[in-house]
């Protein structure tokens, strides 16, 4: 019983920590520009494929290919995120937010089909973070991969936290997100902060893609599912609350795994959406409260 629970929790945390990175990037963009980036799930998928593509360039038999590739994936996807801002956000910054909704849906379509065309429709397996192996914890067999996934996600979250709270640039990002007018008056260039936020979100999506690609493979059609999870997490965590969204993403994964193990996947998914609806009815500000003044 205990070993099964530990096993389930480890799986849920590994999956959930990747979802948390996804939600983190998603909510950063919401804060910066007040618009939903519907291509975010596809960015995660693209990150997975970038990892797969780069791993083909590495010589065989390296001990930690995933860790070696992590900076390159983050960088590539940061560029991808900035490109997304340039293509799908910048021309529409004076339009209603829903225009960005559509433009990012279009970018998602482009990403999905370009990758399917280039890499083929089959699922791919990404580079492993660390060597294969199992650790025994209370009778449950936990793979190195799972533990490494959790660790890398935690490090990335910490890095984002440090960037936002301890650096001048991070404070500028947050200031620009909270009050664009005031930030502009203070001499902050919003184009730069918004571009940087998209880049950061892209990098986080790339990181999540890399983490997921080895354990859970990556398919060009995966984007929609990641996107949905991030969206739900953002609302549960309180619209615009960065860490609320990340924690909520983790909770969603744990909830889904535990309910699926106790009853069934179907019930887990149904309860998740019913839960979201109930939450919206009873506590529209999210579990952790809504970030102030973010409601459009």
């Amino acid at each position: 019983m205990i070993e099964a629970t530990v096993q389930l929790l480890a799986t849920a945390l590994a999956l959930g920590s990747a979802y948390a990175l996804t939600a983190l990037g998603f909510v950063l963009i919401i804060n910066a520009v007040g618009a939903v980036n519907f291509a975010h799930g596809d960015l995660v998928m693209a990150g997975g494929f970038v990892a797969v593509a780069l791993s083909l360039l590495l010589p065989e038999g390296l001990p930690v290919p995933g860790l070696i590739l992590l900076p390159a994936v983050l960088l590539t996807m940061a560029v991808g995120g900035a490109a997304l801002a340039a293509v799908a956000y910048a021309p529409l910054r004076r339009s209603p937010p829903v225009s960005v909704f559509i433009s990012t849906i279009a970018v998602g379509l482009i990403l999905q089909h370009a990758i399917s065309l280039g890499a083929g429709p089959q699922p791919r397996v990404g580079p492993s973070l660390v060597g294969d192996g199992l650790v025994d914890l209370l009778g449950a067999a936990l793979s190195y991969q799972q533990l490494a996934t959790i660790a890398v996600a935690a490090v990335l979250c910490l890095a984002v936290h440090t960037l936002l709270n301890r650096t001048r640039f991070g404070r500028q990002l947050r200031a620009a997100a909270q009050d664009p007018e005031m930030a502009r008056a203070c001499g902050i260039d919003l184009r730069i902060t918004i571009g940087a936020t998209f880049a950061l979100a892209g990098a986080l999506a790339g990181g999540a893609g890399l983490l997921l690609s080895n354990q859970y493979f990556v398919t060009p059609t995966d984007g929609a599912m990641f996107m949905l999870k991030a969206y739900v997490a953002t609302v549960i965590g309180g619209w615009g609350r960065i860490w609320g969204a990340a924690v909520a993403a983790l909770c969603i994964a744990v909830f889904e795994v535990l309910v699926a193990a106790a009853v069934s996947y179907l019930v887990a998914e149904m309860l998740l959406y019913l839960g979201v609806l109930a939450l919206l009815m009873l506590r529209p500000q999210g579990l952790f409260g809504e970030a102030e003044g973010r409601r459009a």
């Binding site: 099964a4 389930l8 999956l15 859970y216 795994v257 699926a260 193990a261 069934s264 996947y265 179907l266």
Partner: peptide
């Protein structure tokens, strides 16, 4: 056990099968 194509995690199903 019915499994949505988007499901990535089979541990719950395997646990239930074992149980």
């Amino acid at each position: 056990e019915a499994i949505d194509p988007g499901i990535k995690d089979f541990v719950p199903a395997l646990e239930r099968a074992a149980a």
